[in-house]
């Protein structure tokens, strides 16, 4: 547990912090540029706002994937971690949690003011935020699989994006549907279910993939 917390706090303060800051900038840029591209009509903006916020969050999350394992793999730290008392699954989980806290939690909070900027009502904006809180963990968890698969691949970052995109499609669909309107409660439940399912599966898959690299 101590090791888990140590890893989490180091990743949060180090590699993921920069990626998270970049992600926030990206997210804000999309929200500001969107009305300039679409036109300022409130009803149009409000209609597409949840989807746009979700897409921006997904792409911002993918930005941080590259830094999840790569540095620790290259410096040999991942090897030390793999041989320590902490199971590699827990290492993956700590890294996913750090990624989520740094790259996605700020966006879920920011989606409230950004929703208001895009002419959503207060209730709808809160709906987007809640849907993101419950649904985006799936991005970090599925993302870890992509990051693990492309650990030492050429142009790994871009490749991880291509691999994670199909995986993140269901969370994106349920998430943007859960943000308001008809069927939002059941979509919210399905999105949360996907996050929980990812929590059950992804750490094991990612660590299995990492082991094949470490043992090679």
């Amino acid at each position: 547990m101590k090791a888990f917390v140590a890893l989490l706090s180091r990743d949060l303060g180090g590699s993921q912090l920069g990626a998270g800051g970049l992600g926030v900038l990206f997210f804000l840029a999309v929200v500001v540029l969107l009305p300039l591209g679409i036109g300022p009509r409130g009803d149009v903006l409000a209609q597409i706002a949840p989807g746009i916020l979700w897409i921006a969050a997904l792409l911002a999350a993918l930005l941080g994937l590259e830094s999840m394992f790569r540095e620790d793999f290259e410096t040999g730290a991942l090897e030390v971690m793999a041989m320590s008392a902490l199971p590699l699954e827990a290492v993956v989980l700590a890294k996913c949690l750090a990624h989520w806290l740094a790259c996605l939690l700020p966006l879920a909070i920011l989606s409230v003011p950004c929703g208001l900027l895009l002419h959503l009502s207060v209730g709808e904006s809160l709906g987007v935020a809640i849907a993101m809180l419950l649904g985006t963990p799936a991005f970090s968890l599925f993302g870890s699989i992509g990051a693990a698969l492309t650990l030492d691949a050429r142009r790994g970052g871009l490749l991880a994006l291509l691999l994670v995109l199909p995986l993140s499609m269901p969370p994106l669909i349920f998430g943007s549907l859960a943000s308001g309107g008809e069927g939002s409660v059941s979509s919210l439940l399905l999105g949360t279910g996907l996050s929980l399912g990812a929590l059950a599966v992804a750490p094991f898959l990612s660590s299995a993939v990492l082991w094949t690299r470490l043992r090679a």
């Binding site: 180091r10 030390v80 041989m83």
Partner: peptide, 27 residues
């Protein structure tokens, strides 16, 4: 305990931060 070619040090942080991290991580 395996000490490989690589030093398992994060380049961005200070020597102290690295040592303290490994102290906590290895309990």
């Amino acid at each position: 305990c395996y000490l490989g070619h690589e030093n398992a040090l994060s380049r961005q942080s200070s020597a102290r931060a690295n040592l303290e991290f490994w102290t906590k991580f290895l309990d």
